[in-house]
């Protein structure tokens, strides 16, 4: 694994562009603040979970009062749907939030308390004020090519780690 540390986001992006479409191995950036762009998948998951949650919340109430244990409460109709809306809406919100959180953990494979990149000292600055680029490749040829490309871009630090 090759790890290059850069002084700013601009320099990091130049390095990413330089490595793009060179097929030298998975490239990952480590930055203290979010880069441009966002993934759509979790948004979709949250939306679907929210809608399903609302439907499930409403469905549970309708099932409970219509089929499972209908009972006369206040002379209201058994499936008193206006009263079921707040519960369904809150369940939808909760389902969306939970789906987002759990989905986030799943797509990022969190918690991952150990990653080979933690062996690097310069990685410590990735969450503070350094912009890092990591190329995970085991092939020494590719590793050498990556290092060549990166060295030309004057990183603050360049190191090689075991993957």
């Amino acid at each position: 694994m090759i790890l290059g540390s850069f002084a700013s986001e601009k320099e990091l992006m130049r390095a990413v562009d330089a490595l793009r479409s060179k097929e030298l191995g998975p490239v990952e950036t480590y930055t203290p603040s979010p880069p441009e762009g966002e993934h759509f998948i979790l948004k979709l998951v949250m939306l679907i979970a929210g809608l399903l949650g609302t439907a499930a919340g409403f469905g549970m109430q309708a099932y409970a009062t219509g089929i499972s244990y209908p009972i006369d409460i206040g002379g209201r109709p058994n499936v008193f749907w206006p009263a079921y809306i707040p519960f369904a809406v809150e369940t939808g919100f909760l389902a969306a939030m939970l789906a987002g959180f759990i989905g986030f953990l799943i797509v990022n494979c969190l918690p991952t308390l150990y990653d080979p990149i933690d062996e690097s000292d310069s990685f410590r600055r990735a969450s503070l004020d350094a912009w890092l680029l990591a190329v995970r490749t085991g092939d020494p040829d590719r590793a050498q090519r990556v290092m060549d490309i990166l060295r030309r871009l004057e990183p603050v630090r360049l190191e090689e780690l075991a993957s």
């Binding site: 009972i71 006369d72 409460i73 206040g74 002379g75 209201r76 009263a83």
Partner: peptide
């Protein structure tokens, strides 16, 4: 013993209900 008892509607546990 209201047929449209306001007390029955608001009990969250369902502890007061109406018999037929």
């Amino acid at each position: 013993h209201c047929e449209e008892a306001p007390c029955e509607v608001v009990c969250p546990f369902g502890a007061t209900v109406h018999d037929q």
